[in-house]
Design a protein around this nucleic acid. Sequence first.
DNA 1: ATCCATTTGTTACTAGCGGTAACAGAAGTA
DNA 2: TACTTCTGTTACCGCTAGTAACAAATGGAT
Lengths: 213, 213
Amino acid sequence: METTHREDRLGAAERRRRELLEAAERVVLRDGPGASMNAIAAEAGITKPILYRHFGDKGGLYRALAARHTDALVDSLRAALDAPRDRRERVEAALDTYLAAIEARPQVYRFLMHPAEEPGGDRGFDVGQHSAPLLRRLGEELATVIAERIELGPEGEERARVWGHGIVGMMHAAGDWWLRERPCPRERLVRHLADLLWGGLVTADDRAGGPGF
Amino acid sequence: METTHREDRLGAAERRRRELLEAAERVVLRDGPGASMNAIAAEAGITKPILYRHFGDKGGLYRALAARHTDALVDSLRAALDAPRDRRERVEAALDTYLAAIEARPQVYRFLMHPAEEPGGDRGFDVGQHSAPLLRRLGEELATVIAERIELGPEGEERARVWGHGIVGMMHAAGDWWLRERPCPRERLVRHLADLLWGGLVTADDRAGGPGF
DNA sequence: ATCCATTTGTTACTAGCGGTAACAGAAGTA
DNA sequence: TACTTCTGTTACCGCTAGTAACAAATGGAT
């Protein structure tokens, strides 16, 4: 049958694609975000042009690779935010989910966030257009959740988006710093960040002897 | 005189260095962060090896170029935070200072924050070690200010650093998003962010019909 | 069986990158 | 005049992303 045949072929192509993505992931995990197309092709047991046939260019491979993790992370964050608990507990759960993810697979998330890095004179895993699509995506997702769940009055939409991107940025920057310096256990970082969002900056007292921050 | 001579030479070298940096800045502003060493050398009217003699490698040139803007920005942020006004006004002034800066010279700050970008098939302006030293620097600076000015009880230092990096990340991510989408005037973005830091997330009511965020 | 289209794979190349070695003059010093 | 130091060049290396051109296998259709 013609249809069956074509589905087989498509199925085969998709299976191949998955194999290639898994090879790429292995290389990225081993060599860091600066992995070269040659190295990835070699790991997959083939040569470069095949990679380009499947993904177009390096940005395409990056996007395909990023999409999996991004989707997985977004799903678990949504789950954390949807749990039937009070607001503070949910925010802490979301923060903890994100931080646990970057703690468990630092290379993956460094790759997602900072496409070009690593000391070894690399040219970087260039995204093409955006520097960190994951951040923007997370920001938009959180904005949606906020807008859906919280009554923010006039300018509510706008506020929700600002807050979404702002909170995600806060989480990311703090996580990045924490991952490098490891100054405290995760739970304490989560608590500090939640405290900040809970108005810690307003309720804290000025230090004696100064005009206050 | 020997000393005079040596000072002349040093002065000449430093003047040269400034010329090169200005050429580099022109190219970065024109071509984006992916500017090549060749292009910069050409703009300065010389050839590559001279650049390398002055700055070691591309990271060195990046750092030298970044240091100027970073210092300038840090100074104005410190000034905003040191003004004799109440805490909220100072936070808003700092946010506004940062956002005004990235609004006035977007290319410069995109270059500082996202060393590798631009669609035109570039290899990126690789920093070498850090992806965005400016962010980390700002985070540490803010942490210092917070620790100096606010009484945070036990774990105060740790809290201050988390908050410093978190707030800077929030500012950066929101600014990045705002710069691309321009969804509202700057002052409103500033107000939204300050509201968030002032516990907007806690005081806002749940939306009717849902379990709340 | 044969012809044909499609897919999978290769080798060999381009253009450009960051970075360097080797060499040529100019300038001041002894 | 001889020596050192600095500025500048050309010509290269090894690497990268990306592509063109060609070979072979696969699986219908006639």
